[in-house]
């Protein structure tokens, strides 16, 4: 092979693992791999969206009635928070590419703060459901006469399954971004001078945002 890779020790910018020939091949592989993973995430949430679509199509009038139980203002607040966190994550990637460490750290911190804010708002919403006995199960309680209680429970089953799974992704995102921020702050060899970790985690975080972009109108803003 004519192309002989220049070996740079790991931890330096442009370091290459031994299975790769050069930094471009390595970076490309990571980005493509992340996208392939996100395809699986799309299918993962896709199945839930499909279930939602089928039941919504079946029970549109009932779902419309039940969705008033959700507060669209809290939903809109959470959308704004998540969009802002996505924006600051995109900025973090930008600064990582320009190797501006302090700014990158500030952006990562903002993202984590926004993510916590999102969870707090989510917690407020969920505790309200708890108080009104809207958690599916034996204690589910429904008084509205216009909607059969079982369909209301189905709506809340979908709501908790989808927002719950999304919430799990948010928690994972918080952990991953915090670890990244710590590593960047400590100039760890795994991330020093390398924007790829930030970029990959950024892709994940934007995906979490994407899911919420669809969840928000589907649950909080059901049109009649």
């Amino acid at each position: 092979m004519a192309h002989v890779a220049k070996k740079i020790p790991l931890g330096e910018p442009g370091a290459v693992f031994e299975q790769y020939e050069d930094i471009h091949q390595q970076n490309d592989s990571y980005v493509v791999g992340m996208w392939a993973f996100l395809v699986t995430e799309v299918m993962f949430f896709g199945a839930l969206f499909l279930m939602y679509s089928i039941y919504r199509w079946k029970y549109q009038p009932y779902f419309w009635e039940v969705h008033h139980e959700l507060d669209w203002r809290l939903g809109a607040l959470n959308t704004t928070i998540l969009l802002a966190s996505s924006f600051s994550m995109a900025l973090a990637v930008h600064f990582a590419q320009r190797t501006q460490k302090t700014k990158q750290l500030m952006c990562l911190g903002t993202t984590v703060l926004c993510a916590f804010g999102f969870l707090v708002v989510k917690g407020i919403e969920w505790s309200a459901k708890w108080e009104h006995h809207h958690i599916p199960g034996p204690n589910f309680h429904w008084t509205e006469a216009t909607v059969p209680p079982n369909v209301a429970q189905l709506f809340f089953s979908l709501y908790f399954a989808m927002t719950g799974l999304h919430g799990v992704h948010v928690v994972v995102g918080i952990i991953v971004i915090s670890v990244l921020a710590i590593l960047v702050a400590k100039d760890n060899v795994m991330v020093k001078g390398d924007y790829i970790p930030t970029e990959l985690i950024g892709l994940y975080w934007h995906f979490v945002d994407l899911v919420w972009i669809f969840l928000f109108p589907l649950f909080y803003l059901i049109p009649r």
Binding site: S86, G202, H206, F207, D209, L210, I213, F214
Partner: peptide, 13 residues
Amino acid sequence: AVTKALLVISYFM
């Protein structure tokens, strides 16, 4: 929602 998703995918991602 699709427009928003396209914006996020094209620019943020």
